[in-house]
């Protein structure tokens, strides 16, 4: 079953084309939607929710037509908007119970699911306090909870890591991973930061200027290009020469040496070589953010990683 399938989907606002001739098929799982600000991510989400009609083209979500089955789609989908959407004068519990009822859950079920969902997103004693006093991290958790409380088949998260500090960002990404892996709910998550989506997504759709730049699975992308960065506290030239002798080609970037890691035995080899040269090994890590290269090949360049 495909999660999302669009055919020449287009949305124009007057002279501005927000989504341009988009054709893509996405399998269930955690899906990243990446693009710069104004690339058409939010418009695409709203079209998929059936909130904004498409100018032309068609799309199916969970095998439902976005043009004619919007209500059925919205019953089975949860949506977390990018902007703030929490009234400050009620507690998180009251708000989530209300939102659960707004999704059609009977009151007792709404209460039960609200307590469960708030616990899953990591909100405990705070949930009995008015939301006006919440931190950004807590507010993001409540926003996520309202999207999850009715146990949807798919949640759409619009820039969920926006405004979070690095720790909060990690928590949110961990939650997204859990929603996909543990809860078994598909996730469509947007971000303008490619690097963070790479960590949690099964596949990534990249849009730029409303057009599809690339769609591929992150597993395929990251394993093919795995590179190892070796950093030492001295000159890397002798190390490069030594590795060359053992038949391991490398490229140096200042104090760092980039080695193609085809075999894990290479890790031991490098460690011994560094020790033999009496150098200090600062770190060895797999080079991350290889997905950023798809912007170089695709033509879009103003998306950060």
């Amino acid at each position: 079953m495909t999660l999302i399938s669009t055919r020449a989907l287009t949305k124009r606002f007057g002279a501005v084309t927000a989504v341009d001739d988009l054709t893509v098929d996405v399998a269930p799982g955690v899906v990243g939607l990446v693009g710069a600000n104004g690339a058409g991510k939010s418009t695409l989400l709203k079209m998929l929710l059936g909130l904004v009609p498409a100018t032309s083209g068609s799309a199916r979500l969970l095998d439902l037509d976005i043009a004619t089955e919007g209500t059925a789609i919205r019953e089975r989908v949860g949506y977390m908007p990018e902007h703030d959407c929490l009234p400050p004068d009620v507690t998180a519990t009251e708000f989530i119970v209300h939102m659960a009822r707004m999704s059609g859950l009977p009151t007792t079920a709404a209460r039960e699911r609200s307590a469960d969902t708030l616990r899953h997103v990591g909100l405990y004693e705070e949930r009995y306090r008015p939301m006006g006093g919440y931190s950004t991290g807590m507010r993001q958790r409540v926003k996520l909870a309202q999207a999850l409380v009715h146990d949807p088949d798919l949640v759409m998260l619009d820039e969920p890591t926006n405004g979070l500090d690095p720790a909060g960002r990690d928590d949110m990404l961990g939650l997204i991973r859990r929603i996909g892996a543990e809860f078994g709910i598909s996730v469509l998550v947007t971000s303008h930061l490619l690097g963070e989506l790479e960590r949690v997504c099964d596949s990534v759709v990249v849009v730029d200027g409303g057009r599809l730049l690339r769609h591929s699975s992150t597993v395929a992308m990251t394993t093919e290009t795995t590179a190892l960065l070796v950093e030492v506290d001295g000159d890397v030239t002798p190390l490069a020469a030594l590795l060359e002798q053992r038949g391991v080609p490398s490229r140096s970037h200042g104090r760092q040496l980039e080695v193609q890691l085809d075999d894990d035995a290479l890790l031991d080899l490098i460690r011994d070589a560094v020790a033999g040269l009496d150098l200090g090994l600062v770190r060895m890590e797999r080079r991350r953010h290889r997905m950023s290269e798809l912007f170089a090949t695709g033509g879009g360049s103003h998306v950060g990683t």
């Binding site: 949506y79 959407c85 059609g104």
Partner: peptide, 18 residues
């Protein structure tokens, strides 16, 4: 006004209610 001011309205419209 409360729903509009705190932008809760989009949450309602992302649900079955029209």
């Amino acid at each position: 006004s409360r729903d509009l001011r705190y932008r809760v309205v989009p949450l309602y419209f992302a649900r079955p209610l029209q």
